[in-house]
Every structure is written in C-alpha cells, then in structure tokens.
Nucleic acid binder design. Structure first.
Length: 273
DNA sequence: CTATAAACCTGCTGGC
DNA sequence: TGCCAGCAGGTTTATA
C-alpha cells in the first residue's frame, strides 16, 4: 500500500514525535514480521536504544538508533506505524515498541506482508535491494530519467513500478504521473521524446509532492502515526476512476492490466503512439 | 532480457 | 442474509 508519499509523510511525523525517545520494551506478536533474525535477538538489539534520526529510502522507512544500528521498516501492502496508549488498541499489531514516555509505537499489519529489519547505520544501502534514484532529489533530472528508461524495452508502467529503475513509485503514483505527462502506460521508455521526458519528470515529482502534501492516499489501509487517513484520494486524477470522466477532457477513464496491476489512464489525453 | 505466475496473508466489496 | 469470486497500496522467487 504505502508508496513514497505515504512513507515520507509518516517519516516527517516521526521526526518530530519519535526522535529522542528510548525503546524500553519490545513485543513481537508475529515472528515473520521480523526479517533476518529470531524475535528474541531483534528484541535484545532494540532494547534500551534511543532514536537519533528518521530517514527514508524509496518505500523504506529508516529509524536510526544510537549504537550505530538502524531499524528498517517496509510496510508493503497494509502496514502502519501508529502511536497508542495500549497494545490492544489495534487488532493487527505484529510488533510493539514500548517507549520511555509510556506510549507504544505499534507496527500494525493485517496482511502480514511488511517487514522490520535491523542493519548497521553506515551500511543501509547495502542492506537494501538495489534501488534506483530518489525521484524528489535535486539530482533527479530529466536526463537521469532518460538514462534510467533507455535501458529497458518494457512498457513505461512496468518500468516505473521497478524499484531498481526509480525508487518509491507504486501503482497509484505511476498512474498519476503518466496522466499528468499525457503518456500512455504501454509506451516504451526508450521511445520518449525530449518533451515527453520532461513532462514525465514533472509528472512524477508533481504527483508525489501532491501526495505528501495531503498526507498520502487512503482507500483502504494507509494511516498516519495518529491513525488518521490521508486525504489524497480526493486529489488523484485517474487512479481508481475507471469509467468516470477525465478531469481534463471528459472521456471515460480506461482500465487495463499491466504486470497484473490495475492501470488507469485517459484514452484521449494519453494516446498510444 | 522480458514475461508470467505464484507465493506471502487478510479483509472488503459486489454480484447472485 | 449468505456465500463466493475477485480485488487490494508490494516484493521475491520460480519458470518459460
């Protein structure tokens, strides 16, 4: 579920609410939510650690601790990090961190796909699978985008969903970016003109920034650290709008399947060359 | 390299 | 009301 905007929004919340807190207790309720080690070792390595910083890489949330270790969280389809007064406030708790102010930070995840891991703070990139550039970094230019897309013959939608091409885009924001750019999801990356590349670059950044601004997109499970929904569903232009009129031209939004993922676009505004 | 399917899991929605 | 099929923001692994 969470894509870059949903992770970034939560990261910004945690930067002001979690940094400085110490972990005084760890309860693992679903062992497989912890990656790479047994729950006992995970709990032992987190015990008495203080949070010194919050970061994000693609869809990975990074919680830096003293002792040079970082807690890496990937929420996958249905995971959320939520502050609570008690563990049983949420029915889907997989891991609970008790904090030194008496509250809990709960990792809640109905579908159990998400993972928590620990890695040396100076080796985060090596601990993650190979990720492409950060699309909101200043160094992510239309030229960089062109180079990333030139290396593949796959449909653009498939390339945008590939985290090793660009980090952080998922099904919602890939569709939104392509709509903003006026490019059909089945176009080939290598076939894009200079103008189309610039539009796609602007579309990617614009869609992501809009998502962050509205607290992320919630149509199902995404919640922020206060268990609040994100408002960006009111601002998406094509995602899950199948059959509804295009906000630009009125043509009904079409839905196709790419990589077994629902893909939404306007047949008029996003022509297939 | 590309494409496709399956696996990991549970909950919700829509149709009959 | 009840049941079943299908769908869901992601990623990894196996197979053609």
């Amino acid at each position: 579920m969470p894509e870059l905007p949903e992770v970034e929004y939560v990261a910004r919340q945690l930067a002001t609410t979690l940094v400085g807190r110490r972990i005084v207790g760890v309860e693992v309720c679903w062992a497989r939510s912890v990656q790479g080690m047994l729950p006992e070792e995970f709990a032992a390595r987190l015990a008495s650690r203080s949070v010194v910083g919050i970061g994000r890489r693609g869809k990975y949330l990074l919680i830096a601790l003293d002792g040079e270790e970082t807690l890496i969280v990937h929420r996958r389809m249905s995971g959320n990090l939520i502050f609570a007064a008690r563990i049983d406030e949420d029915p889907y708790v997989r891991v609970a961190l008790k904090l030194d102010d008496g509250r809990y930070l709960l990792y809640s995840d109905p579908r159990k796909f998400g993972r928590l891991a620990l890695a040396a703070s100076d080796a985060i990139e090596q601990a993650l699978p190979g990720l492409g550039p950060e699309p909101l970094a200043a160094s992510f230019t239309p030229d960089v985008l062109a180079v990333r897309l030139a290396a593949t013959r796959r449909p653009l939608k498939a390339a945008l969903l590939d985290q090793s091409v660009i980090a952080g885009l998922g099904n919602i924001y890939a569709d939104e970016a392509l709509f903003r750019a006026g490019i059909h999801p089945l176009c080939t990356g290598a076939s894009l003109s200079r103008d189309e590349l610039q539009r796609l670059h602007a579309g990617i950044q614009g869609a992501l920034r809009t998502g962050i601004e509205h607290g992320g997109t919630t149509f199902g499970r995404h919640r922020d650290v206060h268990n609040e929904t994100g408002a960006n569903l009111e601002h998406v232009e094509v995602y899950r709008r199948t059959g509804q009129p295009c906000l630009r031209c009125g043509t009904p939004i079409a839905r196709i399947t790419v990589l077994q993922r629902g893909t939404h676009y306007c047949p008029h505004c996003q022509p297939l060359k």
